[in-house]
Design a protein around this nucleic acid. Sequence first.
DNA 1: CAACAATACTTCACATGTAAAATATCTTCA
DNA 2: TGAAGATATTTTACATGTGAAGTATTGTTG
Lengths: 160, 160
Amino acid sequence: MKSGQLQSELKKKRPFDSPEQEALLNILRTNDQFQNRFGRLFRAYGLTSSQYNVLRILRGEGKPMPCLDVAERMIQVVPAITGLIDRLERQELVSRQRCSEDRRVVYIEITTKALNLLKKLDQPVMDLHKRLMGHLTRTELKELSRLLEKSRTNLPETRD
Amino acid sequence: MKSGQLQSELKKKRPFDSPEQEALLNILRTNDQFQNRFGRLFRAYGLTSSQYNVLRILRGEGKPMPCLDVAERMIQVVPAITGLIDRLERQELVSRQRCSEDRRVVYIEITTKALNLLKKLDQPVMDLHKRLMGHLTRTELKELSRLLEKSRTNLPETRD
DNA sequence: CAACAATACTTCACATGTAAAATATCTTCA
DNA sequence: TGAAGATATTTTACATGTGAAGTATTGTTG
């Protein structure tokens, strides 16, 4: 009687090959559904998830940041950041300034407009967190975080 | 001493607002890293993750499937499936056949070439599962799956 | 100081994900 | 039957993710 919720969600006919596979697919599946949720929330405010992330990072930093530093915290490949910043700039949510000491570096600064937008989003975002995860007990949440962190410890070192 | 692995991974300055947020970001982060891994593996065989998924679904079904049924199991929005199938067809990994009874339906069939490709991938995929999750005990894996499934139970019903 | 390597970005080409609208076929039912 | 509504799939427009290659600048070194 262990044939599993995920298995039926995916209309999968056979059970999983291993508990490893089942846990892994559960991670991917949960992520997809949560991403969808957040995507919809942000879209209602004219942002995408990635754009929101850039802005949140900039606000957290509190001062202009080099392009690549933003990209690094996004866990994102470099080239994608350029277009992302382009679009944010077009919406006047960030501005670019070339560093005068090292002219290769481009600093990204968040605008007041963006800060106001983020402020409006803070409560809805927190609410969504609670709505998605609030039915787990505090103990369960900590255990979930622990297990996920443990999962990541075994990442074959490469980052290429 | 709880300031957290994830927090430092993200170079985040302040701790998380709530355990809900921390667990949620842990899910997203773990997913990203795992997706990268699998993406690289599949790319080595000339496939993307999505393409692999389509093929795996088709093999699991064992017979041709309507386009939308594939899309549904992918947790993917409909329009994306068309291009995905296009590219698979171009690589001769699937074929399309219009259903004669209901001419709206397009059946997708996996080719022998694709079945052979999948067969070559089975072991590497299973190995990667083990490599990424194998250091968790069986009990931990089950608990992780349980917590993720519980997380998903509260998804506000919409699928819009 | 000139050549070369290293950096920080940007551009290109391509696969994918999303929303919205268009097409082609059924189904239904007045 | 014939018009309206449902279905299955495709098309379009746009944001994002990836790898590979290009550009501008800086650093290093013989």
